[in-house]
Write a protein that binds this DNA or RNA. Sequence first.
DNA 1: TGCATATTCAACCATATAGTTGAATGATAC
DNA 2: GTATCATTCAACTATATGGTTGAATATGCA
Lengths: 109, 109
Amino acid sequence: MVEYALNLDYIFASLADSTRRDILRRVSSQELSVGEIASPYDLTFAAISKHLKVLEKAKLIIKRRRGKEQMVRLSPQALANVDKYLEAYRRLWEERLDSLENYLKETEE
Amino acid sequence: MVEYALNLDYIFASLADSTRRDILRRVSSQELSVGEIASPYDLTFAAISKHLKVLEKAKLIIKRRRGKEQMVRLSPQALANVDKYLEAYRRLWEERLDSLENYLKETEE
DNA sequence: TGCATATTCAACCATATAGTTGAATGATAC
DNA sequence: GTATCATTCAACTATATGGTTGAATATGCA
């Protein structure tokens, strides 16, 4: 319960930064080393290392050592928790979309 | 584009606080005044007012004046954007759930 | 062992955030 | 207009966050 709430704190805080969202996107399709992750950004390795720490604390990524590199990949479970969180609200925005659709349909006629 | 990204920054940052998530939950079923929103929490009005500012900037809530009160309600659209953001990842955690299901099914046999 | 490569840690700085208190504003009621 | 109720603003404090630099650690290789 509390665990779950804390987890959402970490997950949402992680996702609130566009560099971290970009990292997530990139590791979602393939495992990358920390160096590979860092290279496109105009930031120090240490900064990227910190971003990865944040993502790791939120359990959004998993790191494993491969030789001298640390390999990083997405752990989709945390995002599934976000989806679960949204569940309670889905009906609300779908209703709104429905009424917009109806409105458009009626306007067509 | 940039607008959308900034929006996600604000939305996720808003959701990273359990008081704000609780406020969202409470205004999702009914419109509440700022005072009604504040009453269950052990925080000053000013603190709640700030939380509402954060939620408003993220377009998660809408305020309107009713007499001397400000009434607050959920604006579900911003959450629909989160759902849209998750879209790209849904396949990934569903695959994982599927393989867990298969594993359990096979273990049963 | 010693060197190079990959990554992290420690210390520090600047800015943002979450809270407080007390004054200020807006709207209604008298 | 004045008092009152509801809310916000301003100023301040403490802590968190995102970045830097330079030293430290971990692994692989000669």
